[in-house]
Design a binder for these strands. Structure first.
Lengths: 224, 224, 224, 224
DNA sequence: CATGAATGAGCCTTCATTCAT
DNA sequence: TATGAATGAAGGCTCATTCAT
């Protein structure tokens, strides 16, 4: 699954591909940074962005709240990093699935989309706070962050569109498919599933929903 | 289109079905209430809930901000009313379409869902701030309001499920349809369309997306 | 003594020449404003600008510190008003002396400068915190306020220069007088006296200093 | 020109008359001390005392800001040293002129005061930040430093008074001169000139002002 | 009933200072 | 000895809410 450039970058900047030779202090610093992001994530998820004070984050970590400001510019800065981190995590989770051009038959495609569906389900199952924060909390922080989230959603649509285009090309998807808009529709279903998963963590529900989505995708609802 | 009880109630409370014999002052009061809700909606949509002060709302109406508290308990109270008002408006817009049991053939059903799709598109087209506030701003206010919004989404699912169940019963929809989960999937597509419409107001885009959703619903994407 | 336009304005704006028909509330407001300026003056004089908190000012007045912000934008705003008020007070005190063109003989001029000297002495005697705050505290607040104070000093030089020019014109002052620079020198003596008065409030000292300045002005120090 | 004891001391402590046999490290330490004072002077002059952080000073020198505290106790300590250093520099500049008892005629005295005037002018011309920091910034730091500056001004008055007393004794100055108060007046003129020089660095202006002061000193302003 | 002056809880942020490395 | 990461006191400022007029 190919991924828009900016997220790749932030992914790398996040924690990978660092120069292997990081000094002791630098490692500590990077770790504390990550811990602050994690603690902030916890706080935001528990109480919401606006109800969370910098002091809450610091206290949770057992650090002075002045320390926070050594690592992030201000409250706005941290929420941005938390969200970017979430996006990076999601992309990482999805990115492990194969690329759009890795399949060549409808059956393969079914399997692939099932895998992706499962990845999404796992993501939610592993931590329902992730979609909740990303989709329900972040857009309410301010206009910029809302745009950021919408950008992310759109970028996912592009990915899906690429999958569909590949399928049309190879002939196992309808030739008259409006790939972009269909991608939007399909991602809407996933979005709906994710939002449903925010409250209903039970695996069964997730599984049946996933199956329903897939049946709908391939067969539609009309009786034959 | 049947509508969950609570929203009906709030709808009534909103502005209809009042005893016809309302005194002069009571009418004034009711009107100012409505104006405050409208002004609050404008403010929240423009600046977001947290960035909006009670003073902003009052100023916009040219009333003293003390007056605000004669009509609503507090800031939390008003946002709840604004959101309920939005939901009521949406339900009203959708409720004008026929009920689930009004159709008996697939063709009718197609037409009905097309009408509903158009109603949704009109809603967005008329004022994209409505979905933005409801779906992107409100859930970030606090946990309770988030639940409220999720409740609304689920209630819409129930409505859709009723439509599907009716179709299965009458045999024009697949007999093995998981009506609830399919309803969730379908509503996800609508959700996706609405969120897309938050930023892309152009009618064309809305129309092609609606068509893509409908084709997907009935035929799926697989080549036959 | 004529006075530069801007200070006249601020003087008026300060508290005079208001429309006589000020409503009850407006009067209260204006009075509280003045009280805040006065309390701020006290605080700044006692502890210095930077050591004074808004809370100190509010507490001294027995008002909530939020109230302060209803009357002044921020801490910077109040110090500016305090300083402007001081300048206005000084100009008012000096302005009561006659204008530069009111005298026509050396003897009159001597008397007039003696009166001015006395006015300055009274100013200091009445409240040595005034020159201390204006000359020693305000310039240390920030660059802008420093410039404000220097502007004031220069404006006083212009006034003195006008006096001297008048004297040269009428022939009772040396024809070859460099009026501007001499004015600066004379005002320097006054400045020195004022600064001396900041610590030495005794009238005797002020009086003998005033006499020494006047002798120096008219006769110089050289033996004849 | 004799100089009050305390300043002599601080002068020595500042950088002179150290035991010649200072170890390598001691020399380094002394030098860094001086560099810190210099950097602090720069910072205070540029941004003002309160707006300057210890970090600014350290950064300017390229040292860690913890190092600062190995050389000075705290922020207050350094500003005191900076001011003392300024005073020492000024005294050094003026001290190079002859002592009060080195002249015996009015003409010599004129020349001497002209030299002193020139020294003052040079001081300002060389670095207008010196008087600005000493006279306009330092008194606003806190009460103690304000007193320090006022002490310095008074000590200068004593020096001038000694000059005048010498002149009266030798008969080339008016016998009825109030030497102390006249000294204060004369120093006031210098003070005025210095403060004027803070903003107006042009040599011409300084020169004509110096001349005006001298004419005033010896001849007064009255027409003969 | 409408108003807006008053209030103070609460929060973000800075920065002088300490101290372990 | 030099460093800079950590700290938390301190303070400026906002804004929802109350209440006297």
């Amino acid at each position: 699954m190919s991924v828009p450039e900016r997220y790749v970058i932030s992914l790398r900047a996040g924690n990978r591909l660092r120069p292997v030779t990081a000094s002791r202090t630098e490692q500590r610093k990077a770790e504390l940074r990550r811990e602050i992001v994690a603690a902030s994530f916890d706080c935001f998820a528990e109480q919401g962005y606006h109800a969370t004070g910098i002091a809450d984050i610091a206290t949770r970590l057992g650090i002075g709240h002045g320390t926070f400001y050594r690592y992030f510019d201000n409250k706005r800065d941290i929420v941005e990093h938390v969200i970017d981190d979430l996006i990076a995590r999601i992309l990482a989770a999805l990115g492990e699935e194969n690329a759009p051009d890795a399949v060549s038959t409808l059956e393969d495609y079914r399997l692939q989309s099932a895998r992706i569906g499962e990845a999404v389900a796992n993501l939610i199952g592993a931590d329902p706070r992730v979609p909740r924060l990303l989709l329900l909390e972040a857009p309410g922080v301010d206009a910029e962050l809302r745009e950021r989230v919408l950008d992310f959603i759109e970028s996912m649509t592009e990915v899906t569109a690429a999958y569909l285009a590949h399928g049309v090309e190879l002939g196992y998807l309808r030739g008259d498919l409006d790939v972009v808009q269909s991608a939007r529709a399909i991602n809407g279903m996933i979005l709906g599933a994710v939002i449903h998963g925010v409250r209903h963590h039970d695996e069964d529900s997730q599984a049946t929903l996933a199956r329903a989505i897939q049946r709908l995708m391939y067969d539609g609802i009309a009786a034959r």
